[in-house]
Amino acid sequence: MEMMIDFTEGFSHGHVIWGWMIGVYLVLAGMSGGALIVALVRRHYSKNKENTGLLKGAAIIGFSTIAFGMVFLVADLHRPLYFWKILINYNFTSVMSIGVAAISLYIPLTLMVFLMALEEEIKDFFQTKIKISFVHTMLTIVINILKRFRPYIEFITIFFAIVICAYTGFLISVLIRFPLLNTAVLPILFLVSGLAAGVAATRLLTAGYYRVNPSTFDEGLLHRIEWPVMFLEILLIAMLIVSLVLGNDYQKEAMAAFDVTRSQWAYLFWGGVVGVGFGVPLSLNFLFGHKVAHSSFTMYASGISTLLGVLSLRLFLLYGGQTFGIH
């Protein structure tokens, strides 16, 4: 039976409710988790237990991006001054509540990893740059205690880094009004694109460091991991599209988000995600020969393009998804 009575007007009046601030937060959270997953898994399987440039870079990104992400998360609230209510009222059927619980554990963990990975630099800073012996002594004590539990702390951090990446996907994949978001691949897509962003950010940050302290392995690892991650990302986006194309009427309708004649957000996908995010790194590295592929321009350009691609993907899904909901 066709619906005999239904309504098409809603109280959002076609506006996108969750906008760019949520999108930026999703990228920062993914970048934080992705960077730490790569660096800590690498450390776990490596005999080299020194604080490598890769680990230092990832530790800086891991802590700073998630902390900065909180600014956007709170700023997006309509009652930002009451954000603390979320810390004292838990509802464990809510992905947001579960996410807040995970973040409350994850941020201290990233700080611990940061303190251990940059031990020498931090101590040096308070000894020679700003001479505060009290802070220096306290930090030394704290870091020495932390180091006794280092393998456990790092293992739990890997676990929570995966949780953070995946939860950002679940956060919006539960929204049944939006077929583009309400898919099973979103959490894993966000984990994989979080890895891509984390690797790109770590590479950009450590490029200068590696010019001074060459480590062919770590630097090569970041370069080698880039392509399988991108391949997985493309595969997952293809799966998402196929599931919509072959889906029910609601899902087919949501495909309009990819259609440039019907959706302005389609430009963000084809230009930002496909063109900049995948096209620029692939062509710079494989189309113009050995010299271009190994230039530092290509390194910086691919890294920045990857980050822009990941940002475009999150923004496209949010805006395109919310524009073509069921109604």
Binding site: W18, H78, Y82, K85, I176
Partner: peptide, 20 residues
């Protein structure tokens, strides 16, 4: 009093009948 205005309920409602 406990609402922080995150608008999660607004996007979660499949009928789009909630508002801030």
């Amino acid at each position: 009093d406990d609402c922080i205005g995150c608008a999660y309920c607004i996007v979660a409602c499949p009928y789009d009948v909630r508002f801030i």
